[in-house]
Nucleic acid binder design. Structure first.
Length: 490
RNA sequence: CGGGGCGUGGCGCAGCCUGGUAGCGCGACGGUUUUGGGUACCGUAGGCCGGAGGUUCGAAUCCUCUCGCCCCGACCA
């Protein structure tokens, strides 16, 4: 967390109670409108019992951890903890899009019907599109996707091949009136999605954009602690020739998938890659699509059977993203053309790319939890570390916790301090449920020897060390996570 | 949209079949107790039983309609 980290360490030891509230200016990696948080002043309505409507583990845990509240079938309020994770995921998506050179914009949720009549999809889309009429009897719709609108923006403002290539994207709420929403945020009617659109002069350029997106998506998911496997898929109503879906393997996934076990050994990691280098991007695509990996829609038994039997796998997967190349499917009917080098007007080649942002919360939890609750990967955790005071009201533990809290804040590490007057067991249970990856436990016994406990949520392993060392250790753990932010040094 | 199920204090449920004036656990609040894995006890507050209509002296309970939610299937980021 450059900037904030090494900047200054004014340790409010002398006055631990007023220390943590002081503003130290924007610190990277923190929730934009976050501030030091104590559970006694937070809004975290955790449930001890399982709500009866939730059938799958991610839905149950999101409800129990006080992250969401259902307002109607497939429509949710995002409570503070859920919103925090949602924002973290959004931030990672933004950063990786920026890294790939894509430009953010924001389009409205409500769109005029006329635009969709142009593409012919106003009739094609059917019941899944939520249609509304305004006071002037104008027909509108709540956007299920945005190909029409982005094409409209493009055609009105871009005329020359010199303005290409161009990739625009947004992270915006969508609405698809599913017949049967289910599984909490995994299959909501209202959902947050990143949708991006590339505009290129030639098919070759557009395929580079396709490959570039594949690379950026691999990075994006890995930063969230997920392995999402690109699989050849079906294009559905979006249409087009080339498409890959990104799937996270999970028993509760809605898609049946078939793959060569070698595919799961591949990692993108923190490779440096030049997104403007078509060959480099293509090489990554080739690497990650070199093994058999398909959904049931495109599964080919004959090809699958050529894989050595011990490597053949079939499983369930959660779809967390999809990329398409669809050529001139929209640009042609909607007149999105540019003047080429030869002076002739040609329709642009396009593709679109989506990441199910709100769905990712469910996917991450499905992939990372245990019987006690959620286990957040460091990249998306709502708070970096939890602080548990075992004897609230005890002068020594209270002041030690306040000092640790201040020290973590100073290093740009977000801490949730469980300062409520509850028993140790209750505090541990709450912390385990909400899944912060690290916990510092401060009790009178340890404090007598100047030690606190640092516990990993994932492994359950606890190590005793001085408060200073615990803070340093947490900072060390998060250093590589913070280093992935982009642009660096912000 | 076909099939199944459910709506009773914030949450989880019982009561419904065999109508008689609403109960349990958790939670909340107040207190005592306790303090290293959801402590124990005492007390308090909180529900026109999803809604409308009907049958009846009387409806959470029976009947009709309606709204909502969940599960399986077909459909989808």
């Amino acid at each position: 967390m450059q900037g904030g980290a090494q900047a200054h360490r004014c340790r409010p030891r002398g006055d631990p109670l007023t220390g943590p509230g002081k503003s130290r200016g924007p610190v990277r990696g923190r929730f934009p409108w976050g501030r030091p948080m104590r559970l006694s002043r937070y809004f975290l309505p955790v449930l001890k019992e399982n709500p009866s409507e939730a059938q799958i583990v991610s839905h149950r845990l999101m409800l129990r951890a006080g992250m969401i509240k259902q307002q109607a079938a497939g429509i949710y309020s995002w409570l503070p903890l859920g919103l925090k994770v949602l924002k973290r995921i959004e931030q990672i998506v933004h950063e990786e899009q920026a890294r790939a050179g894509h430009i953010p914009l924001l389009m409205p949720t409500l769109q005029p019907a006329d635009l969709w009549r142009e593409s012919g999809r106003y009739d094609d889309y059917g019941e899944e599109m939520l249609r509304v009429t305004d006071r002037h009897k104008r027909e509108m719709l709540y956007g299920p996707t945005n190909e029409e609108m982005i094409t409209d923006i493009f055609r009105g403002n871009v005329n020359s091949y010199k303005d290409l290539p161009l990739t625009l994207y947004q992270i915006q709420w969508k609405f698809r009136d599913e017949i049967r929403p289910r599984f909490g945020v995994m299959r909501g009617r209202e959902f947050l999605m990143k949708d991006g659109y590339n505009f290129d002069l030639t098919k070759e350029d557009a395929l580079h954009a396709y490959n570039r997106h594949l690379v950026s998506y691999l990075r994006t998911y890995e930063r969230m602690g997920l392995q999402a496997i690109p699989m050849r898929a079906d294009s559905g109503p979006i249409g087009g020739e080339d498409t890959h879906e990104f799937l996270v393997l999970a028993d509760t996934g809605e898609s049946e998938v078939f793959y060569d076990s070698e595919i799961t050994d591949l990692r993108f990691g923190d490779r440096a890659i030049d997104y403007d280098d078509p060959a480099a991007c293509r090489a990554v695509l080739e690497e990650f699509t070199s093994r058999y990996a398909r959904t049931d829609e495109t599964h080919d038994e004959a090809v699958f059977n050529q894989i050595p039997e011990e490597r053949r796998r079939s499983a369930r997967g959660i779809e967390v993203g999809q990329i398409f190349y669809f050529g001139t499917k929209y640009s042609e009917p909607m007149g999105a053309t540019v003047v080429g080098p030869d002076g002739a007007r040609v329709p642009v080649h396009m593709g679109s790319h989506g990441i199910g942002v709100s769905r990712l919360l469910g996917a991450i939890i499905e992939a990372s939890h245990d019987e006690r609750g959620i286990i957040w990967p460091e990249g998306v955790t709502p708070f970096h570390v939890g602080l548990v005071n075992l004897k609230q009201g005890d002068a020594s533990t209270d002041s030690a916790c306040a000092a640790i809290e201040a020290e973590l804040q100073a290093r740009g590490i977000e801490v949730l301090y469980h300062d409520r007057d509850e028993r140790a067991g209750a505090k541990f249970a709450t912390m385990d449920l909400i899944g912060l990856p690290w916990r510092i436990t401060v009790g009178p016994r340890g404090l007598a020897n100047n030690v606190v406990e640092l516990t990993s949520r994932r492994t359950g392993e606890s190590v005793e060390m001085s408060p200073q060392d615990a803070v340093a250790r947490v900072a060390e753990v998060y250093a590589p996570v913070f280093a992935q932010s982009w642009p660096a040094g912000r």
